[in-house]
Design a protein around this nucleic acid. Structure first.
Length: 195
DNA sequence: TTGAGGATTCTC
DNA sequence: AGAATCCTCAAA
């Protein structure tokens, strides 16, 4: 069943761990189980795109919950988030990794660099590429599925003992323990080696 | 108008 | 470890 609007209408640090084991689904048949997420919390979070208030780029984050916020970075990668909280808060959950379950051939075609299935969606850029998520899907309603993308539950509960720790790839608020993932899951992204 | 940096990935 | 690659935004 589709997650209701109210599921998202909370602090992202509450929503994030509950998104583990939910399914990201596209209308063309692609589906993957979310296994890694991070919370980004607006004005209280120096690492969030929304920290300094609304801009053209982060406008979707400040909109209603349950929508997809898509951003572009490093000149080549897209990132996908579920907007949370209330309108104006600018908070959300970054979808960092997922385990493909349906439409895997389509994901392989979308990700020619992936050598194994654990490379298909084990990172925010990889996940977005596997699902064909770009700017065109920014603002899509994940509850109504109006643009062919939704988040649903197949009844699998979130893990009772998720791994919690600092977020990856940021330079500010590096100590916030706002990353969650399914324990010992092969589709979780690899933490970059320390410099 | 400019320039620094980025919620990353891939290859060497 | 270094390259790829370009958008965004704050500052000037």
């Amino acid at each position: 069943m589709v997650l209701p609007r109210d599921f998202y209408r909370r602090h992202p640090a509450l929503v994030a761990p509950e998104l583990l084991n939910k399914l990201l689904v596209r209308a063309d048949g692609r589906a993957a189980r979310i296994v890694e997420v991070e919370a980004y919390a607006g004005h209280e979070d120096p690492a969030a795109h929304s920290f300094r208030g609304p801009t053209a780029r982060n406008a979707t984050m400040f909109g209603p919950p349950g929508h997809l916020y898509v951003y572009f970075t490093y000149g080549m990668h897209w990132g996908s988030n579920a907007v949370c909280g209330e309108v104006g808060e600018g908070v959300g959950v970054l979808l960092r990794a997922a385990e493909p379950v349906l439409g895997i051939e389509s994901m392989r075609a979308a990700r020619p660099a992936a050598r194994r299935d654990t490379d298909l969606a084990s990172g925010p850029g990889k996940l977005s590429q596997a699902f064909g998520i770009t700017r065109e899907l920014d603002g899509a309603d994940l509850v109504l599925g109006d643009r062919g993308i939704r988040i649903v539950s197949d009844g699998t509960p979130p893990p009772a003992d998720p791994v919690v720790g600092p977020r990856i790839g940021i330079s500010k608020a590096t100590d916030f323990p706002w990353r969650w993932h399914v324990p010992d899951h092969p589709h979780v992204s690899v933490r970059p080696r320390r410099p």
